[in-house]
Design a binder for these strands. Structure first.
Length: 424
RNA sequence: GCGAUCGUGGCGAAGUGGUUAACGCAUCGGAUUGUGGUUCCGACAUUCGAGGGUUCGAUUCCCUUCGGUCGCCCCA
């Protein structure tokens, strides 16, 4: 039995990889327009980073991390998300001291979570995310959200739902938490075992429970929105107003609780509404994390960001039946007939490539017919035919595969002929 | 971690307790000694995910295992 790919990972082969390249390119263009700069951080970090940032009561930390001990006896974890590393780098390199603030960063790269794979969920998956550090202006919350929306809309997606919520600041969260505990505690034995634990660890997450969704106490549970102090409420108002002014539609859902501990104030999520999507419809998640930098040992720094998965983006595109405009086909295929022509084709192909023409030739000693078939399959615009009698006259026949017309061109002007005609 | 379902050539897929494992696509060769996308002919699985068991005999029955897919929990 040959060795197989590890569970939950995938090889992205030619034919599929073009879609990834296209999306990554779009993401980079978008970030350039919004003035976010790329940051590349390691794929593994000290485990401690995620314990401190993501939160040790979260599912990510409790059951999904790829953690191992290296030869130096250090506990290392393959990054399950990108924010922690980005903020770590921001603090470590004292980027808060850089002249241009806020610091606006983006990343594209693999993340790792040990889970059972299913549609839209992998053990290694690719996230594109942005982080804006150093500003507590609600306008930048709106900017981050708008960039996310623009990413999807720019690719042609339409069936999107943006959900936002506010988790409030420390003070608001504490009073809400107390209210939640008081609300659920008397009847907590009616809830699932997870929720019973959550009452102690993080009562907010009870609201997110899928099992106990129908419990009457869920309906009457205190909403965070009623516990926001004046400052938090005002902040959330401003975010909403900015979004409205940008023409971005959204829905406020006070039950939106993000899965990571570091969030506060604005939390948001984009889901796909498309028919036939799998069970997982969350395309992107993000939020504000004002205490995170400090948690990691840096100065108190406000921050906000999002992360989206390319895998799910591709699923959404498929669900909406969107074809990406990928450039296919090569400019030219050189068909050689006979030994001398074959030798000549080697140098010709080389010259054409130097002229920036995409060109292929046969390396399997195929018959002429098979060479033409190959040219056809590669969607070549032209076939350059080199035969012995052409060679003697220092010409080649060039056939346009779309029109089927053919003409003779002097050997030394093939490149210019192709360049002139390839875009028609 | 739990559950459902599947696993036959490069891909899609039929099939049976028993001497040659359909078919379609793709590929390669030929019809057409230097011209593609159409057509016709031909070639292409000592083998049915792996290991073990039952049996005179298993791809087909049983067990184990690995893997895919989908779902639960949770998330991107």
């Amino acid at each position: 039995m040959s060795i197989q790919i590890p569970r939950g990972t995938q090889d992205i082969l030619p034919g599929e990889v073009e879609r990834w390249q296209y999306i990554e390119e779009k993401a980079r263009e978008l970030c350039k327009r919004f003035n976010y700069k790329e940051i590349r951080t390691p794929i593994f970090e000290h485990t401690e980073l995620f314990l401190r940032s993501v939160g040790d009561t979260t599912d990510i930390v409790q059951k999904e991390m790829y953690t191992f001990t290296d030869r130096g006896d250090r506990s290392i974890t393959l990054r399950p998300e990108g924010t922690a590393s980005t903020v770590r780098a921001y603090v470590e390199h004292k980027m808060y001291g850089l002249p241009d603030q806020p610091t606006k960063l983006y990343y594209i790269g693999p993340m790792f979570r040990y889970e059972r794979p299913q549609s839209g969920r992998y053990r290694q998956f690719v996230q594109f995310g942005i982080e804006a550090l150093g500003s507590a202006d609600p306008a930048i919350d709106a900017e981050v959200i708008s960039l996310a929306m623009e990413m999807y809309k720019g690719l042609g997606l339409q069936k999107l739902k943006l959900i936002i919520n506010s988790l409030g600041d420390q003070e608001s969260r504490i009073s809400h938490r107390t209210a939640l505990t008081d609300h659920f505690a008397p009847h907590i034995e009616e809830f699932c075992s997870d929720c019973q634990k959550r009452l102690e660890t993080n009562p907010l997450r009870i609201l997110d429970c899928k099992k106990d969704r129908e419990h009457p106490l869920m309906e009457t549970a205190p909403s965070i929105l009623d516990y926001l102090n004046e400052e938090s409420a005002h902040y959330f108002q401003k975010v909403q107003r900015y979004l409205q002014s940008m023409g971005i539609e959204f829905e406020v859902d006070s039950r939106l609780v993000r899965g990571l501990d570091y969030y506060n104030h604005t939390a948001f999520e984009i889901m796909s509404d498309a028919e036939g999507f799998g069970a997982i419809t969350t395309l992107m998640g993000g939020g504000r994390y004002n205490g995170l930098a400090q948690e990691i040992g840096g100065p108190e720094t406000p921050g906000i960001g999002f992360a989206l998965s390319i895998e799910r983006l591709l699923l959404a595109l498929a669900a909406e039946g969107i074809e990406l405009p990928l450039g296919k086909g090569i400019d030219c295929y050189v068909v050689a007939l006979g030994e001398e022509a074959k030798d000549a084709s080697v140098t010709l192909v080389n010259e054409l490539r130097k002229s920036n023409i995409t060109v292929e030739k046969d390396y399997l000693d195929k018959k002429v017919k098979a060479q033409f078939k190959a040219a056809d399959r590669l969607e070549a615009k032209f076939v350059v035919i080199l035969g012995d009698d052409e060679l003697e006259r220092k010409v080649a026949s060039i056939k346009n595969l779309q029109t089927g017309t053919q003409e003779e061109v002097a050997l030394d002007s093939i490149a210019s002929y192709l360049m002139e005609n390839r875009d028609r």
